[in-house]
Design a protein around this nucleic acid. Sequence first.
DNA 1: CGATTCTTTGAAAACAGTCAATCTGTGTGG
DNA 2: CCACACAGATTGACTGTTTTCAAAGAATCG
Lengths: 192, 192
Amino acid sequence: MYDVFQKYLDNKITLMPGEKEKIRSVAVLKKIRKRQFLLQEGDVWKYDAFITKGCVRTYSIDEKGVEHIIGFAIENWWTGDRESLLSAEPSRFNIDAIEDSELVLFTHTNFEMLCHEIPALNNMVLQILQRSFIAQQNRIQAALSFTAEEKYKQFLLKYADFALRIPQSMIASYLGITPETLSRIRKQTSKK
Amino acid sequence: MYDVFQKYLDNKITLMPGEKEKIRSVAVLKKIRKRQFLLQEGDVWKYDAFITKGCVRTYSIDEKGVEHIIGFAIENWWTGDRESLLSAEPSRFNIDAIEDSELVLFTHTNFEMLCHEIPALNNMVLQILQRSFIAQQNRIQAALSFTAEEKYKQFLLKYADFALRIPQSMIASYLGITPETLSRIRKQTSKK
DNA sequence: CGATTCTTTGAAAACAGTCAATCTGTGTGG
DNA sequence: CCACACAGATTGACTGTTTTCAAAGAATCG
């Protein structure tokens, strides 16, 4: 379980002797089953969470009870609610597992300590944040510029590696359309 | 002109003796007039840009020639295209001035050097990035969850300080609706 | 196999987009 | 200072897309 994370780290940064162990010593392993919550609306999120196996979704629920998926995350991705983490306010989001999943958790306090002591790690976090920022910007642009069909196509291209693991109703939610509309788009495009 | 930026810095971080001057020495002042480009699609963006006066917009143009506004920025905000900056690829965005504006520019190379030498500055950048990330996440959530009317209301609340400086057609573009639709929404809500 | 969840389909209603015309306000040149 | 031009905002009629609601059809899991 932890070895997936270790591999990820080795791939990204080179650590000084002893640092590997230091990181390892504050890591907490966690398994969650399909449909199980990692974070529930109203709770305060306090971790940095890395997925070693499985798939989770982050979503909000509007006043009509409809779910709106903000993002997905799979193996080798980080997840969590940065807003709640930094503000220490109750989260407006839910995170739950789409598949049985395994995670490596760090309490944010521990993780900050690690980042402070290990510049390479701190730098890695900055890189990830930058990349997430860019990805979000592109998603906003897509939402503004593309039709539902184009957004779906782009989604399949961009997330080809795990698009098939996700129920269509959830993809629809992510794209901001109803499951019925997505079903019709698929029918349309399969004709061609 | 530069004093606006200096004030901003003083407000955010405390600098060691000499650091102020070091920052100042690599800053470049720039004025742009209304409608003038700061960045044009196809060019590579190489700066970190701080606005001391005025207002700019970042937008893309789709294949039909329609503009889609990704974001606005005013005094005391940063602007630019992080994607182009980090990838060194030509930008897909345009940035131009909505009002006559004044900026403090740093070439990214210089700015990185400064961040490397001044940990407090580096930390500030991280904070800004985190906050931008959260703001974008909230925008995505709003786009998914809210009706056009709700999005407009939220925009007015959130950006009350400069919403009036921006033409309605641009607000419509930002919200992902046509100017006509926004006009009708305004008519509706003013009735109540 | 039965139960539950997910997907598809249909028809009607709601909504936003398009196109074209008019109105309004601002700023410029005569 | 006026008149005109121009850009932005509004309005109306029409079209097209998406949602909604309801029901039937697959697929999945214990």
